[in-house]
Amino acid sequence: MIRGSLLLVGFYAAFILMACARKEQPSEPLSNAEIEGQWLYDTHCAECHENPQPDLHKQPPNLHGLFLRKSLPSGVPAEDEQVRETIIEGRGTMPAFDRRLREEDVKDLVKYLRKLK
């Protein structure tokens, strides 16, 4: 009986690990703007950049640690303005978010991307 319960608890722990491994969250506390950016990321970006569909023409790049590199996946410098421009205008098969995200939304999103390690 106890062995069976332990087995169940073991399975349960494995389930929790699987569920929590879904997305790595920033370890540092987030500012209000970054929390807003996190929401925007989860709503508008995560579907493609966290779990890209294998049948898309180009695989969207993983954005974790985006600002830890010298350049963005497109080759341009990893700077706020370049990321902002990519979000607004799109790049390659990535759709433009022009007129759908407000300027302050994009700023919050970029702030969160800086925290996404």
């Binding site: 579907e47 493609c48 023409h57 759709p95 433009a96």
Partner: peptide, 19 residues
Amino acid sequence: YTRCPMPNFCPRLSSQFAR
């Protein structure tokens, strides 16, 4: 529409048309 952000819709259609 080119600004479609949902991978299951327009990006999927265009990706499959590309194939």
